[in-house]
């Protein structure tokens, strides 16, 4: 199952531990995470479900290509990293 981990910068607002989830795309994987932790969604995605402008998502060492719908495929051994971009501080 893909692993999803989050920037430690989120820790002062809410818990965001690394989790293993089902999912064939980044969208599906994150939906599993947000089902367990609904408050986390708004920190990562905007109201239309796109990745926030100053949040970065990587699949292993590759940046997410589809920031609007997060349709990038993931394999069971992949790691998804949700990070804060250097912009936006």
């Amino acid at each position: 199952m893909p692993k999803v981990s989050f920037t430690r910068a989120l820790e002062r607002f809410l818990a965001a531990p690394m989790v293993e989830v089902e999912g064939a795309t980044v969208s599906e994987a994150l939906a599993q995470v947000f089902a367990r932790a609904p408050a986390l969604r708004g920190y990562v995605l905007d109201d239309q479900g796109a990745v926030r402008r100053h949040v970065s998502i990587y699949i292993n060492d590759q940046p997410l290509a589809d920031r609007q719908r997060l349709t990038d495929p993931v394999e069971p051994r992949d790691e998804i990293f949700v990070l804060q971009a250097l912009s936006g501080g």
């Binding site: 989120l10 607002f13 708004g42 971009a85 501080g89």
Partner: peptide
């Protein structure tokens, strides 16, 4: 008004 994570 969080720079990275939106309005809370």
């Amino acid at each position: 008004d969080l720079g990275h994570f939106g309005a809370k």
